[in-house]
Design a protein around this nucleic acid. Structure first.
Lengths: 206, 206, 206, 206
DNA sequence: AATGAATGAGGGTTCATTCAT
DNA sequence: AATGAATGAACCCTCATTCAT
């Protein structure tokens, strides 16, 4: 393993080191998106990246660490975008719509990332056999969505309902939208997002 | 390969043969539910069933045939139950609620089956590399749900909306409910189902 | 194992037992001829015979014993025929020709046996890894052929030469004739046999 | 798979890679010669070579590729030698003798190769179940031998006869010589070769 | 006499990982 | 920093053999 803990408590990596990791992560995303998690061997990823198999092991402690980094780099970018889009929006209804439309908009240009994330979330497991990104890894998302819904309830925009159920439903509906789109490339993602936002909104208002 | 096609065009198996297959399928369901599709090796399944690895090969032409039978036996039972519960229900709103509550009720006692089905649907691949249960596995469900929604629209119970988006959302919401429940065993599944039915209904009515 | 040693020192088997063994041997011959020794599993042979796998093990101590019996039954029939045809022939040249033509004539109607014999001779091995029917098993044939050639030399029909080399060559030439014919079914076996007899004869006479 | 096609259309391999392949091929030859094709497992070959089983898979795409390479490396060397020895020989009778003596001479030091070749020719099968080196493997030899005989007929050295039968007989006689010698190590191979050449020659001349 | 069920060893292959260079 | 060679474990599958019925 190359990365070391620097004096600031952060992982410190050379520029070249970071570039290699990024390159490997990008190759991993493509391969996973194309052939699925199970078939995404290090050999395949290395070939796609145009490097040797050993180099991946050199830069990553193991396959798991690579997968985690794929998630971190990919997922981080999405969150960044969505949070930016929601900045300044004031009504709960608009926040809800914005969340759905924003993530849909971002994903339209990042289909491979979407597919890869789904594969990793659903397949990457810890040593104990449990999913590394279990439903628990959604907790963060649920909390964020619950904030929106609770906010809407506090302003009177939304009726009373179980916000956790709503958050789970919301999250799953968005994921399913992507899943359907991934399976049906001709599907109109934006229209789906608009319809979905409508459904969610109607389910909340009085 | 054990099974053969009898004169009636049905698979004809001895009682003992069928019992073994059922036992192996049951073990497979448990193992897949616990450790996921990729880690569900025949060795693991055999050990769980308390039999030798070779015996699985004796009763099934291959791992794929076993997986397909897991789906057939498990999925068939669910559909049977839900269809039975929906028999005689007349309003679209009640059909919708019944569907959600019925499958939730059934699943409460069949958590492993649920998990295993999801794993197989998402991972079992054909020789060509494509998912064996691709879109088709959901397509069937989508069609069934669309019927309910279209029926509601025809009677005026439901407003106009895109039934495919609704079906995808509905299906995913139910799945997510199970997923959440699987990850949080103390979660109140029935209450969740009731809340979810409310949300779906409100999203549909005028 | 069923067979037992009777009071006369011969293996005594019931009629039904013998019939079963014959049936299994026949099936083995067909299967070996079709798919080769390595692919001729007991399962395949049993299926061909229309019986269960276990029954073969019931009648034969093991696969090896079955193979040995295939050879005995098949090979014995050939020898019987050839010996009969050579009865009464008086000149060495005629004996030589008769031997070649007789075995060729017999084989024309017993291609499967021919193929199976070749497969077993070339592949059946003892526990020590050595061929069960090695070149040594040809010794019997060599001796018989040497008799012919030595007889010819004693009568002055044939010149002096190394009879062992001649016997080895003769035997191999006949085998190769069958091998070529087995690979080229349209090949004229009888013409080949005539030509071969000519060659052998010319090689011997002064 | 290691080997790749270089810019010159030739397989380009590193020195070390080629050495390993040669080592593995050598081990395969020995094992096949000793225990036969069917028992020559990769595990056995690897153990003989003093390497791990996986390394064979690393250097060869599969067992079949290894077997093909065994044939290529081994068979090529024989042909090279024999062709060289026959260079410049002018009479058909001398060509015939030279062929027999040359291959016999070469084989004296390459018994295992001979055995291994025979095993592979007779057992290596394609996916469709047919022998990979079927008639074709002999056909090449037959053609070459026929040339000699036809040449002799054209010069009047040899009488008229069926050259294909002669070629088949010639080839089989040489093979049998090796087989006999392999089974009887004390046998005088060179004398046998000389006698055989005599026989073949006498069979051809007027 | 005959079956079907069951085992266990061994087959070839894939793959993450390690390591010398 | 990077490679290619090498390992060993685990994978699915085949098969001769055994055994209760």
């Amino acid at each position: 393993m190359r990365s070391e803990i620097g004096p600031d408590g952060q992982k410190s990596r050379s520029f070249i080191e970071d570039a290699r990791r990024a390159q490997i992560v990008a190759a991993a995303v493509e391969v996973i998106a194309e052939v699925g998690f199970a078939q995404a061997s290090l050999a395949r990823i290395a070939k796609r990246a145009g490097i040797s198999k050993g180099l991946i092991s050199y830069h990553f402690a193991g396959k798991d660490e690579l997968m985690v980094e794929v998630v971190e780099r990919t997922y981080g970018a999405i969150v960044e975008r969505v949070v930016a889009d929601m900045q300044g929006v004031e009504s709960a209804r608009q926040l809800l719509r914005t969340q759905v439309m924003s993530v849909a908009g971002y994903m339209r240009g990042h289909r491979s990332e979407l597919k890869a994330l789904g594969e990793i979330f659903g397949n990457l497991r810890d040593a104990d056999g449990g999913l590394h990104y279990g439903i628990k890894s959604n907790e963060e998302i649920y909390r964020a969505l619950e904030q929106i819904y609770r906010f809407g309830q506090s302003t009177g925009e939304f009726r009373e309902f179980d916000v956790r159920v709503m958050a789970v439903t919301h999250s799953a509906s968005v994921d399913a939208m992507f899943g359907y789109w991934a399976a049906n490339p001709d599907h109109d993602l934006e229209a789906h997002a608009r319809h979905l936002a409508d459904l969610l909104e109607r389910a909340c208002v009085t």
